[in-house]
């Protein structure tokens, strides 16, 4: 039925000037609009101010303690810290046991989490239509949301009690690895998804076997994405304290034995925090940790941003 030709004139009406929206209403609407924008700017400003407040106050307090010894000596004992503090000097010693411990823990955790994370990420990507792969992806998401302290309990139950019979590097790195794993799985899948389908098809059309397509085409062309994901995962676990409290405890000396306790920068901060004589060291260690973590964080972002093919 062609109704358009039956348009009824009585249905049509145009605006008369009395229908104008009154100045009062317009003014109040514009005022609300402006107030809302001011609110948006105000609250955003508060958020940003928080970033500067936290980072700024840390820098202001922590930079003065950072010196060469900070990176070469182990943490001082309470007594020498107290002596230095009472005579107004810089606290002797540094956090080298924590730095090396953190590197040790994270390296070991990466060695466990990175290969598995990438393999699982590739698996999910390759089988994305399968229900099982979707379940694996959901499990990765759930693991990502598990509080770090719970991961600490798990590593305690799995490693500290039955295997190393005490706090150990191994237990700590297992805890960190469990935290890294889902991050790497998801970032691997996401960066593989960014590889254009045509690239894969071109390789397959040339008769390239499946495993070579993955190893020679998919992984190399998403390499920077994978690296970005790994760096981000490292930056996330580097600052973790809670799970390490339940697994590696801390160590006043540098330790390389995998079954022995080790220190880490966040653990040292926790230790300094609980010791009133070490206040100056808290801030310098915190600045160091935050600087390291944020640089890694920004680096991963930069790498990910560059990967656009």
């Amino acid at each position: 039925m062609d109704q358009t030709t039956t348009l009824n004139k009585k249905y049509i009406s145009t605006l008369s000037d009395k229908d104008d929206i009154g100045n009062l209403l317009i003014r109040s609407r514009k005022l609300k609009d402006r107030l809302f924008k001011i609110a948006a700017m105000f609250f955003s400003f508060i958020t940003i101010a928080m970033v500067f407040l936290i980072i700024g106050s840390l820098l202001a307090k922590g930079l003065k303690q950072i010196n060469w010894a900070f990176f070469t000596q182990v943490a001082p004992d309470t007594f020498s810290a107290m002596m230095a503090k009472s005579s107004g000097q810089v606290i002797p010693g540094g956090i080298v046991n924590g730095i090396l411990g953190s590197i040790y823990l994270v390296a070991l955790a990466s060695a466990m989490a990175v290969p598995f994370g990438i393999l699982i990420g590739v698996y999910i990507y390759e089988n994305s239509k399968k229900r099982y792969a979707a379940i694996i992806r959901d499990i990765a998401d759930i693991l990502q949301g598990v509080p770090s302290i719970v991961i600490g309990i798990i590593a305690y139950i799995w490693i500290v009690v039955p295997l190393t019979k005490g706090y150990s590097v191994f237990a700590g790195s297992v805890a960190l690895a469990i935290m890294m794993l889902p991050l790497i799985v998801r970032s691997t899948e996401e960066s593989l998804k960014m590889v254009p389908e045509t690239l894969k098809e071109a390789a397959i059309a040339l008769g390239t076997p499946y495993y070579k397509v993955i190893l020679r085409v998919l992984i190399p062309s998403s390499f920077s994405g994978l690296m970005g994901g790994i760096l981000l995962a490292i930056s996330r676990v580097l600052g973790e304290t809670a799970p390490l409290m339940l697994t590696t405890l801390g160590n006043p000396q540098v330790n390389w034995h995998i079954e022995k306790p080790v220190s880490a920068v966040p653990l040292l901060i926790w230790q300094f925090y609980n010791d009133p004589n070490m206040v100056d060291l808290i801030w310098s260690s915190a600045v160091f940790l935050m600087g390291f973590v944020l640089i890694l964080n920004l680096a991963s972002r930069w790498i990910c941003a560059k990967k656009k093919i």
């Binding site: 600052g239 901060i269 801030w283 940790l289 935050m290 973590v293 944020l294 972002r301």
Partner: peptide
């Protein structure tokens, strides 16, 4: 800039927030 700064907040370790809360 704003979104990068906000994302930085997610990167700051929990213990540093604790210190900031405790001392500031």
């Amino acid at each position: 800039i704003v979104s990068t700064l906000v994302d930085l907040l997610a990167g700051i370790p929990s213990i540093i927030y604790g210190l900031w809360g405790f001392y500031m």
